[in-house]
Amino acid sequence: MAVSEGRIHVEVAFALPEKQRIVELDVAEGTTVRQAVAQAELARHFPEVAADTFERADLGIFGKPVRDPDSQLLREGDRVEVYRSLEIDPKAARAERAARARQPT
């Protein structure tokens, strides 16, 4: 895919357990990670998710968390990943499973 000068091609990915979406974008060089998420308009693709979720979500690039998505600039070919918050704390889930396993049947 040819990208015009001064622009780069990136992807923004978000997933729910039953639905996933990767939005391909051509953005201006100098676009931040958070700006790309806004340009992907994920709230339009996921109306069941509160729109402000995408404004405050933790973000990563190719599985590596981004510390400052409001200032980190994207590079050609980056895939931005929008992370959902955990529904249950992993430690609490393990404790719950262990408690169930100890219960007599």
Results as ranks from 00 to 15, higher is better:
Gly60Ile: 08
Glu81Phe: 10
Gln35His: 13
Gly30Met: 10
Asp89Asn: 15
Glu96Leu: 12
Arg67Val: 05
Val66Pro: 06
Glu55Arg: 13
Asp68Asn: 15
Ala38Met: 05
Val33Phe: 12
Ala99Pro: 02
Ile22Asp: 08
Ala93Phe: 04
Arg44Gly: 05
Arg44Asp: 10
Asp52Ser: 10
Gln20Gly: 09
Val27Trp: 00
Leu25Gly: 04
Lys19Trp: 08
Glu96Phe: 06
Asp52Tyr: 06
Pro65Tyr: 15
Leu86Phe: 10
Val82Cys: 08
Ser71Trp: 05
Glu18Asp: 09
Val49Met: 14
Ala92Phe: 03
Glu87Asp: 12
Arg7Asp: 13
Arg97Ser: 13
Leu73Gln: 08
Pro17Glu: 15
Val23Ile: 15
Ala95Ile: 10
Pro47Leu: 13
Pro90Gln: 08
Arg75Lys: 15
Ala92Asp: 08
Ser4Ala: 05
Val80Glu: 05
Ile88Asn: 02
Ala98Pro: 00
Ala28Cys: 14
Ala95Met: 14
Thr31Val: 15
Ala38Asn: 06
Lys64Gly: 04
Ala36Tyr: 02
Glu81Leu: 07
Lys19Leu: 12
Arg44His: 08
Tyr83Ser: 01
Thr53Cys: 11
Val12Gln: 06
Ser4Asp: 05
Ser71Phe: 03
Ala28Val: 14
Asp58Thr: 10
Glu41Asp: 14
Arg21Pro: 02
Val3Tyr: 02
Ala99Cys: 03
Pro90Cys: 08
Arg7Ala: 11
Pro69Phe: 00
